[in-house]
């Protein structure tokens, strides 16, 4: 009767091997680094020859998710500009954010800002920010210059604003 449930050692071994592959395949997927504001600020403030673009988004924010591909396209096109993707999802929703980034093919400089109180850091990013997302910060440390946008971008708009920021 229990014959059907009998698993040979070889089968068991291959089963473990297979599930191991499956698990490792999963962990190879997009890994968001969870950071606090202090770390984010280090990324914003660090000396850099390149212009940095920080895009604030979240998996629950439709216009944010819709504009991600524009940022990805532009990031691929302009290697001289460093793009950072800062998820404002709660840390417990890390997987949701990871899956979206994976789907959009965004793999580098992806972070999740884990801060309990938004009022403690929003003004530090930019005084004009109401806290609505999507929002994007341009930083040029060489010229000590920033530009902040509380809006969503089309690809053309993003390219235009980057050009303006660099050449201004």
């Amino acid at each position: 009767m229990f014959k059907f449930f009998y698993i040979s050692k070889v089968q068991l071994f291959s089963l473990i091997l297979f599930s191991g592959l499956f698990i490792s395949g999963k962990t190879n997927a997009q890994v968001l680094e969870i950071i606090n504001y202090e770390t984010l600020n280090k990324h914003i403030e660090s000396a850099s020859e390149e212009v940095k673009v920080f895009n604030f988004w979240a998996s629950w924010c439709k216009p944010c998710v819709e504009e991600l591909p524009h940022f990805k396209e532009v990031a691929d096109k302009y290697s001289s500009v460093k793009f950072y993707f800062i998820s404002l999802d709660f840390a417990k929703d890390k997987e949701k954010a990871s899956k979206i980034l994976e789907k959009k093919g965004i793999a580098s400089k992806v972070y999740l800002l884990d801060e309990i109180n938004p009022n403690s850091w929003i003004d530090k990013v930019d005084k004009t920010w109401s806290g609505a997302i999507p929002a994007t910060l341009f930083v040029d440390k060489k010229r000590n210059k920033t530009s902040f946008f509380e809006k969503s971008f089309s690809q053309e708009e993003l390219i235009k604003e980057i050009h303006n920021f660099i050449s201004d």
Binding site: C61, P118, N119, I122, W129, S130, A132, I133, S152
Partner: peptide, 9 residues
């Protein structure tokens, strides 16, 4: 005045 995260109108 305080700041909070929210969805764009």
């Amino acid at each position: 005045v305080t700041k909070a995260i929210g969805c764009t109108i």
